[in-house]
């Protein structure tokens, strides 16, 4: 169950309390997130919507340990990440977070196989074990026959599927998707969302996604709106079950 009222149990997979984020830009202080609370359970699929500059990506960056909050705490699977050192946070990201970006962010000089293998290079898996994991992930996203292709040889939808395979190959605790269909046409976007839906339903993945597209947001179990630095739109703190 997803809650935004701060009353969720400590057993939640993701447990956010009093999250604040301030920026100073041009001498002016911008309060992006203000006292935000959030509880997400394992297997939840949450979409964040809101106008540009509302703090959706900032929230995702904070949850993924890419940025540090001005105040508040984020606890993921019992690990309080807000006070971790930069090096510990790097290791934590490798183990717990799978990122899917709007622009795919594949390494253009590496093949699909090599791109997907990247997170596994940080593990102690042998070469053959890595190969097995990568092939499984690429087959799961339907690109078992495109392993040796470079990103430039793939369509946008295929590139994003490689990015999804890269995000799931190390079996992270949760996936963070920042506008995963923002650069795709409707057909490709639908295919990507079907794939993300399958990851949640069939493999029990926890997904937190930022999107501008209501049709994409509809695929999520819960849609939360970010307004004036807080999450709203979920009656009594809970959204669509």
């Amino acid at each position: 169950m997803v809650r935004v009222d701060g009353n969720g149990g400590a057993a939640s997979l993701i447990h956010v309390r009093g999250l604040d984020k301030k920026y100073t830009r041009g001498g002016e202080e911008i309060h992006v997130l203000q006292g935000l609370n959030l509880d997400v359970d394992s297997g939840d699929f949450v979409a964040f919507m809101g106008p540009s500059g509302s703090g959706k990506t900032t929230l995702l960056n904070l949850l993924g340990g890419l940025d540090v909050p001005s105040a508040g705490t984020i606890t993921v699977a019992g690990d309080e990440i807000t006070h971790m050192s930069a090096s510990k946070l790097t290791g934590w990201r490798a183990r717990h977070v799978g990122f899917i970006f709007q622009m795919y962010n594949l390494i253009p000089v590496l093949t699909a196989f090599q791109n997907v293998e990247l997170p596994l290079l940080l593990t102690k898996l042998s070469k053959s074990e890595r190969k097995q994991h990568v092939e499984t992930a690429l087959q799961l996203v339907g690109l078992g026959d495109r392993m040796k292709h470079y990103p430039r040889q793939l369509s946008g939808g295929q590139e994003q599927r490689v990015a999804i395979a890269r995000a799931i190959v190390s079996d992270p605790t949760f996936l963070l998707c920042d506008e995963p269909t923002g650069d795709l046409d409707r057909k490709a976007a639908d295919e990507i969302m079907d794939l993300v839906g399958r990851l949640v339903k069939e493999y029990g993945k926890t997904v937190l996604m930022v999107t501008h597209d209501p049709a994409v947001a509809q695929q999520a179990q819960v849609t939360l709106r970010l307004e004036k630095g807080s999450l709203v739109g979920a009656p009594e703190g809970a959204a669509k079950p």
């Binding site: 930069a86 790097t90 490798a94 997170p119 940080l122």
Partner: peptide, 10 residues
């Protein structure tokens, strides 16, 4: 930046 996001250290 992507490498760092994936968990590669500084």
């Amino acid at each position: 930046a992507v490498l760092k996001a994936l968990g590669f250290s500084n």
